[in-house]
């Protein structure tokens, strides 16, 4: 299974929403699609789902051009783009059945899809009365109901409360176990780090980076840690550890330590802190690799 953009371009007047995108997502994995507002994330996903017409180039799914061979291209693709509206007088069961029928799907499990997103008890209520978060859950169920091998999810946790977000992340993680490709756009870097295997970054319609999260961690590893202990920390003692560049005291029991780069050093530092009698209860890298990569590639800019 794969999705490929070949010189994919979308232009509105003189503005390029997407410019010569060339990328191939392949295999069973979760790919986080990142970028600031207006970067071209949703435009890409809409081009792959026939909601927009490309100005030039091709969006290809499993070898089929989305524009020319729509039915074959989207045959095994589940989608969630923005927060879709629903026919308000239909119930979740009717909506999902409608989708199964339209998709002429062999696999259709309405009950399971609704249970996955925690909406089974609402199955016979009219969707018009649902909150935004509930509608988002139904939208995710709609993407899942035919058990597709490719899922295109545009900010799937939008409009949800923290508990709902955690539940949906868990749903996505579970979906990964079933050998599928998930392309998920998001603003939330921790969400992408938690859920995805690879990340693609885009800005101003151009692809800036496409890497595995592991490689990103290697490239953009943090070289500082924040340490909390249950006893007082002597920063002078820490400075004596080989490889430590500086120690900043945040409180009596909390310090930030900058050290020379390397995972080995990070591990050794923890061992030495414990060895010198510091009762470490929290030891964490300051800042995520993905955040660093994002800030380095895109900076703090937004395109809105």
């Amino acid at each position: 299974m794969y999705m490929e953009a070949v010189n994919l371009t979308k232009k509105y007047g003189n503005f390029y929403a997407l410019r010569d995108l060339n990328v191939k997502f392949e295999g069973a994995k979760c790919i986080g699609y990142l970028g600031p507002n207006g970067a071209g994330k949703t435009t890409t996903l809409k081009l792959f789902t026939n909601l927009l017409n490309p100005t030039s180039g091709e969006a290809i799914i499993n070898g089929y051009n989305v524009k020319k061979e729509l039915k074959k291209a989207l045959k095994d693709v589940g989608t969630l783009i923005e927060t879709p509206g629903f026919y308000s007088y239909l119930t979740p069961v009717e909506l999902l059945n409608m989708l199964c029928e339209i998709r002429m799907a062999n696999k259709c499990d309405v009950k399971n899809a609704l249970e996955e997103v925690g909406m089974y008890e609402w199955k016979d209520k009219k969707v018009g009365k649902f909150s935004k978060g509930m509608k988002q859950r139904i939208a995710i169920a709609a993407a899942l109901v035919t058990n597709p091998e490719i899922l295109i999810l545009d900010e799937p946790t939008t409009g949800m409360d923290p508990r709902g977000m955690a539940e949906i992340r868990q749903v996505i993680k579970n979906l990964k176990k079933d050998k599928r490709m998930i392309l998920m756009s998001s603003h939330l870097l921790p969400e992408v780090t938690e859920v995805c295997d690879e990340v693609a970054m885009i800005n101003r319609g151009k692809l800036l980076l496409y890497e595995s999260i592991d490689k990103l961690n290697e490239k953009f590893r943090g070289n500082s840690v924040t340490v909390s202990a249950i006893n007082e920390i002597d920063e002078n003692k820490i400075m004596e550890i080989e490889g430590v560049k500086s120690v900043e005291k945040l409180s009596d029991r909390k310090v930030r330590i900058d050290f020379e780069d390397g995972a080995e050093m990070q591990y050794r530092l923890l061992s030495e802190l414990i060895a010198m009698g510091i009762k470490v209860v929290d030891y964490r890298a300051s800042g995520m690799a993905l955040e660093k990569a994002y800030l380095q590639m895109i900076g703090g800019e937004t395109n809105e």
């Binding site: 789902t49 026939n50 909601l51 729509l70 039915k71 074959k72 291209a73 989207l74 045959k75 693709v77 989608t79 783009i81 923005e82 927060t83 879709p84 509206g85 629903f86 026919y87 308000s88 909506l95 989708l99 339209i102 998709r103 002429m104 939208a139 709609a142 295109i152």
Partner: peptide
């Protein structure tokens, strides 16, 4: 009503 986001990205 944005129902197009539900209906249009399908093999139809």
């Amino acid at each position: 009503n944005k129902t197009g986001y539900f209906l249009l990205p399908n093999p139809i």
